[in-house]
């Protein structure tokens, strides 16, 4: 037994207390030391950029009708990868907490930092920073690579054109917001499979439920459905009539994330670990 390395008590305890900064440092270490984080981010970036290049390379502008040319939006077309990308970063958000429940790590985490809403806030900050960075880098890369693939006579989008920079920035921020919503869902549901099902339900199944309803109801519902909000408002340079403005839509998605995280924090604090 190596007793020599067990310290002697007596030194006065360190001042202060654990808090957001120390817990965020733990969460950053946790997120970056599992391989799945980087696999997911790599597939996300490849998907965003690859799809943008593929879509814009195959864009046959010369053959489009007049109406097709009028609605052609070369910036928006660079972000079709978000269909897949939102799910990938959403899964990252779910895994950031559900793997702790499945492994038992959550009890080590709460033993180290008993204030559970603080733990979720630190997780959200770290996950938000990583996914926002991944989202923005991928969005700019997808935009630039996509425009490079687009052939004349199709009009190209540039970051200087009105609304284009906003579309790119919001295309990068959107999957990060989905990751935060997913973290909240994961904190409530706790099981990986269940939380991913809920995420798929919100992103892909919910919009289908409105299909049989009247067009006016669909138009209203679309203002509030995450993926439609991203496609028809956040990343659309040419405004779509029935959608809310990009700024308002972005604010609404931030509110969704806040609600999901608040509900997750409440569920963590209330239930036994």
């Amino acid at each position: 037994m190596n007793t020599a390395t067990l310290r002697h008590r007596g030194a006065s305890p360190v001042r202060g207390s654990y808090g957001f900064r120390t817990v965020a440092r733990m969460e950053w270490r946790k997120l970056r030391t599992v391989r799945s984080t980087w696999y997911i981010v790599a597939v996300f970036a490849a998907g965003m950029i690859g799809l943008a290049m593929l879509v814009l390379k195959n864009e046959n502008y010369a053959q489009l009708s007049a109406a097709g040319r009028a609605s052609f939006d070369p910036a928006y077309d660079a972000f079709l990868g978000l269909v897949l990308g939102q799910l990938l970063l959403g899964v990252l958000g779910v895994l950031a907490i559900t793997t702790e429940f499945s492994s038992g790590m959550i009890r080590a985490t709460f033993a180290a930092a008993p204030r559970r809403p603080l733990v979720l806030a630190a997780k959200a900050a770290v996950l938000g920073a990583v996914t926002l960075a991944a989202g923005e880098i991928s969005a700019f890369a997808a935009f630039l690579a996509g425009q490079a693939m687009l052939k004349a006579p199709a009009p190209h989008a540039t970051l200087g054109q009105p609304g284009v920079l906003r579309a790119v920035l919001m295309a990068g921020a959107y999957p990060a917001l989905i990751a935060l919503i997913s973290l909240g869902i994961g904190a409530i549901i706790r099981h990986t499979a269940g939380a991913i099902c809920a995420l798929v339900g919100v992103l892909f199944v919910l919009p289908l439920l409105f299909v049989p309803l009247s067009p006016s109801i669909q138009d209203t519902a679309q203002k509030f459905l995450p993926h439609v909000m991203a496609a028809l408002s956040l990343t659309a340079v040419k405004p779509v009539a029935h959608m809310l403005s990009p700024g308002l839509t972005f604010g609404l998605l931030c509110a969704y994330a806040m609600v999901a995280l608040a509900a997750g924090a409440w569920a963590l604090a209330r239930r036994d670990a």
């Binding site: 654990y18 817990v23 950053w28 270490r29 030391t33 599992v34 793997t99 492994s103 038992g104 009890r107």
Partner: peptide, 26 residues
Amino acid sequence: ALLEAKAFHPGRTARAHLAALAASNA
């Protein structure tokens, strides 16, 4: 505390697991 034997993420190394916990309490 040692409450259960495998309270760690199976994909994380032992050193990374300990370093993460250590960071939470400076």
